[in-house]
Structure formats: C-alpha cells, structure tokens
Write a protein that binds this DNA or RNA. Structure first.
Length: 564
RNA sequence: UGGGGCGUAGACAAAUGGCAAGUCAGGAGACUUUGGAUCUCCCAUCUGGAGGUUCGAAUCCUCCCGCCCCAGCCA
C-alpha cells in the first residue's frame, strides 16, 4: 500500500487526521475504507476517492479496507465486484486481508434494528411508498406523523420478525427510524431503514428478503470495521446527522464522516448514469472504450497508474465544486510517459520518398537512442534504404511562414540518418495530390550531423519502405466538444455534444521493424507524434493495432492555428 | 420559502490575524538531431460585494449577492 506519489500540498482532510492524531483520538489509529457499490465500473472520479482513502492510510501508517456496499440486490452484480477489485489493484493499492461486504453484517444489522425497536426508536410502517412521500412534507413544509408511528414495541418486534420471515409482500411495509417529521433535514423525517426485497443477492442468495438502506448499513459497517475517518462525497453532508443519530442511539463505536467534493473533468462525463447510457446505447464500444474515463478505458488507452495517482494528488481535496481541466490530466500523462516510454519511429500517413543518389540495393543499420531522457534504456538499429516513407504533413509544396519542414529545394534532417534535399515532386495527374518525393542525400551527414557545420531547421521521422511493418492506429480525441457536457441547461441532451471526431482509424501506417512482436499494453513514444500503446484487446502479432494515448505538445499546431 | 454546503487568477489549489504558495493553461525568450523534453521570465496592488473590529483582515463580526445539494422503499 505504498503510494508511488508523495503529497505536496495540504488539504482539509489531511489536516483533520493530523489533528486527530495529535489529540490521540481513536487511539492514534487511522483506518479508512473505499466503499463502492458493485453496480458499475470504476472511473477516474472513484480514483480520487481511492487515492484519498488508501493514500491517507499509507501516509499515516494506517489501514484501508475495500468494502462493497451491497445492500441493494436488485442493482448489484458479481461482474462489477470483480472489475472493481481489478481496477483498485491496478491503480496500485492493496487491501490486504480486508476485503469486506456490507452483506457480511446483515445479521448484526438486523439485531441493531431490533435494538432500536426495543428502545422505541424504530417502528414498522404500513404506508405505501406514495403515502410515505406525501407524509414526508416538502422542503418548506413539515411532514406529518405516520399513523403507525405509535405501534407498540411488541407489535413492531413481531411485524419486523415476520418481515424477515417473508410473510409480507414487497412494498407493503418498511421499518422506519422514529426521529422527527418536522426536521428541516428531510433525511431525519423518519427515514426508512429496512425494505422488503424478494430478490436474490449475489452473496447471500435467498437468505434475506429484507435489506437495510444505505444510511443504516453504512454507518454500522464503518462502526464494525473500526473505521476512524469515513470519507464520502458532498451530497452525503445532509446524511451526516443521520449517520451520527444511528450510532448514538445504538451506543456503538462512532467514526467521523467527512465529505469532500467529487471530481468533475472537462470534456467528458463522470456520472454513472451517463456512462451507462454511452455504453448501453453503443455510443462507445464498451466499458473499456479508450475514450471514456473509466479506469478500464484509461488503462486500455495507455494511461499508467502512476499518472492517475499523481493527477489525484495534484487536483487536491476540497469542498468546493469544481471542474478540472483535462489538460492537467494530459500533462501528468506526458510527464510520466516522457520519462518511461521508449522512442520509436512510425509514419501515420505515409508519403513515399525516393533518395535518387542512394545506391539501389544498399541498406544501412543506423543507431538510434531509445530514450534521450534515460540513456540507460540503450540504443537500437533502424534500417535505412533508398525508398522511405515520411509523414505527409511534413511536406508542403508551398510552405507557409514558419513551416520549417520539407519543401521543394529545402534541406532537412532525417532523424539519426542523413540530411536530404527535396529535388522533385510527383503528383497524381487526376487529383493533383502529391504522391511521391524525390530527394538527394548528403553522404557526409550520416548519423545526422554535417561536418561543415551547416544547419537545418527541421528533423523528420521516417521509416524504410522495404523494412517497415504495417499497422493500424486509432487516433482519439476528446469524447465531447463541450467543456461541460453534463450541463444540460437549454434543454440539450449531453449526447448532442459528442465529438464526431473522437475516433479516427488509420489503416495504412508504417512502423519501424523493431516493433515486431510488441506486446499488448506496451507503450511507446512515436517520435514527434505522441505516445501510443499496443491495444490489449484487438492487436495481434500479425496485425498490430496502436492506440494513441496522447499527442506530444505541438507548438507548430498552435502557430498554424493562430495563423488562420 | 425549510435544511445543509461553497465562493482566492482562464482551470485546480495553498494560506490557520503578519503583508496572496504551487500546478495546469496562456504569453515571451534560451537551448535542442523530436516544433518533444529542459531552462528563464511574465501572468491576483488582491481573495463574490458592502460595511465594521484591529497597528495589521482572504482569515474575525454584520448585512447582502451568487452557485451547489436534499422531498428513493437508490447509493
């Protein structure tokens, strides 16, 4: 449970823990938990919570439990618990032997509910769901007492027991806490704590037909596990009085609930509802589509756990609702990959180049550095020959101002190879499209330096046509064109902001031969283009498929854009 | 019109009555065999607003304004 990223700034939760430690509260223990409901895939918003909870525990020599909040059998599935475990592990955290389920505590919770009844603090209510809503009142008007509120303890005990036995229909009765129907906090107006659900639970099977509601189950689970700091998101702030009420009435160990603002990321969506919609309605290919911010999607896209941990540390933890710029996530990504990804040359949109004065059948093996940020990663050989491919966008017949790359009559460097000069342009007679370039090379510039000290303004990447491997490359862009697609004011549905260019598939790419056999999931920097990883689902030895994780910063693109 | 929160730069975010950190974005320059990386500099006379307390206020007090959450037998 050692986080590979260390903290740099303080946040209010860390401050609370520090104060508690100083005051020797909770016997100086720090024990947190990450409590997902197994009803969906984890996304980067969950990562913020995971990093916070596990990170705090690690920082202060404490413990963090993984606990599934599985109190609603109608929505939860085993598939999700497996994916959640995998994602937490992948992110870099270890819950040791502390994998728990709220359902582990169902019997204890039942006993606690009985205790509340015996103390006159809970009652069985026969009102229908609609009636309960009516009796609850509104935001500005108090509710009114249920006619069943004054049932005797004996009757309540009997009815609750029979609810458990399955004698009643779903929806016919619930157990409610007896608190205050006039409270300004709606959660305190005699909240339901048990409902009848005749559904099979993924862990307890058909043992139960009554299930506790979140508010009751969560605080008790925290209490049983000896949690010290129960960290959750802002929308539960209103539930804290209830969390405290149950634990006080039950007179049991009492953790403290602390709320923080959930993550919002620009140009994407992080709500479970919207993610489900994108997946189920096939706007994306699945939960691991590289364009969505699920952990499985980010993983397939080529993100590293370190990047995500680092990002989560940088965004901080506060109570203010905010929207983090995707550019920050991408910055963390580039920072990480720049240090670790081996460099390689790949041409996405090939333009054929013939070196007229290069011997027809000659092949040279030129030495290339694997990572200029880390010479320990060594060097490799790349083949050079008479016919090459360069990137289409690296040539302009009529170069605009500040375009330093190849143009008729202009000399540039081919990385690790030679200076070449463009001496001829072949066009398609029909379309006028440039289909081939003729160049000459200067043999004295082998390796890329000229003995006479003459300079070139650009260095291009290239591959040898005869040696390159064909590959497919998926180019990804933001899934949404709008910064906050979740803002559906004006009546626009979030899906209307989908970016039609979020995926572009290039099928005629050429990559250098060293990439033969590249293993799925491995990451590379394609020089001058960006970071790419071998797709872990669709790629194979015979047909390499790369996902573009993120582009390199592109100063030229910025200049070009400002020229328009 | 009830209850609970939150307002510091384009985006995040520190500061704990002592003179507005840091990061991203943006701008300028240096360097460069990746227009990458790296380095340097610039980017809040000011903390939603107005008053007040104080030698001193983003921090304390008062009033005002704005934004978010809550009326599931979801979590």
């Amino acid at each position: 449970m050692t986080p590979s990223v260390s903290f740099q700034t303080s946040n209010f939760i860390r401050d609370i823990v520090l104060e508690d430690l100083k005051a020797k509260k909770y016997d100086s223990r720090v024990h947190t938990r990450f409590p997902p409901e197994p009803n969906g895939y984890l996304h980067i918003g969950h990562a913020k919570s995971i990093c916070l909870n596990f990170g705090l525990a690690a920082e202060f020599g404490g413990l963090c439990n993984l606990r599934f909040d599985d109190t609603n059998p109608t929505k939860e599935e085993i598939e999700y618990v497996e994916s959640i475990k995998e994602d937490v592990r992948w992110l870099g955290f270890d819950w040791g032997d502390r994998l728990f389920y709220a359902s582990d505590y169902f019997e204890q919770m039942y006993q606690y509910a009985v205790q509340l009844i015996k103390d006159g603090k809970a009652y069985v209510c026969d009102l229908s769901a609609d009636e309960i809503r009516e009796y609850r009142g509104t935001l500005t008007e108090p509710g009114k007492d249920s006619p069943y509120r004054t049932r005797s303890i004996e009757e309540n005990l009997d009815l609750f027991y029979r609810m458990r036995k399955g004698e009643f229909e779903e929806g016919s009765r619930v157990l409610r806490a007896k608190i205050d129907m006039a409270s300004g906090n709606l959660n305190m107006r005699d909240p339901v704590i048990y409902r009848i659900l005749k559904a099979e639970h993924h862990r307890t099977g058909n043992k139960w037909c009554i299930y506790p509601i979140y508010d009751f189950a969560h605080c008790i689970s925290d209490s049983i596990e000896g949690i010290t700091h129960s960290i959750c998101t802002l929308e539960f702030e209103d539930h804290r009085p209830l969390y405290d009420w149950f634990l006080n009435e039950l007179n049991v160990y009492h953790p403290q609930q602390i709320e923080f603002a959930r993550l919002n990321l620009s140009h994407t969506v992080l709500s479970k509802r919207r993610l489900v919609e994108l997946v189920e309605q096939r706007y994306v290919t699945g939960w691991d589509d590289p364009r969505i911010p699920t952990l499985s999607g980010l993983r397939r896209r080529g993100y590293t756990p370190e990047t995500i941990q680092n990002f989560c540390e940088r965004i901080g933890v506060a109570k203010r609702n905010s929207m983090v710029d995707m550019a920050l996530l991408e910055h963390c990504l580039r920072e990480d990959l720049n240090k670790s990804a081996p460099r390689v040359m790949a041409v996405l949109r090939p333009l054929r180049v013939v070196i007229d004065n290069y011997p027809e059948n000659q092949v040279e093996e030129l030495e290339a550095i694997n990572n200029p940020e880390d010479f320990g990663m060594g060097t490799r050989k790349v083949p050079f020959s008479r016919v090459l491919y360069i990137e289409q966008e690296d040539f302009r017949e009529d170069p605009p101002k500040q375009f330093f790359r190849l143009a008729p009559g202009r000399e540039v460097r081919l990385r690790y190879a030679y200076f070449i000069k463009c001496v001829g342009v072949v066009k398609d007679e029909q379309t006028g499209e440039v289909v081939e370039l003729h160049c000459t090379y200067d043999p004295k510039t082998r390796g890329g330096d000229s003995p006479d000290g003459r300079k070139v303004k650009a260095t291009l990447h290239w591959v040898s046509a005869a040696h390159a491997i064909k590959a497919e490359v998926c180019l990804y862009d933001h899934l949404f064109v709008k910064e906050n697609p979740g803002d559906e004011k004006d009546g626009r549905d979030f899906k209307s902001f989908l970016n039609p260019k979020s995926l572009e598939i290039l099928t005629s790419c050429r990559v250098e031969p060293s990439l033969a056999g590249a293993v799925p999931g491995s990451r590379y920097q394609f020089e001058r283009l960006g970071y790419f990883c071998v797709d872990s689902v669709d790629s194979s030895d015979g047909a390499l498929i790369f996902n573009r994780t993120v582009t390199l910063r592109d100063t030229w693109a910025k200049i070009e854009k400002s020229q328009k």
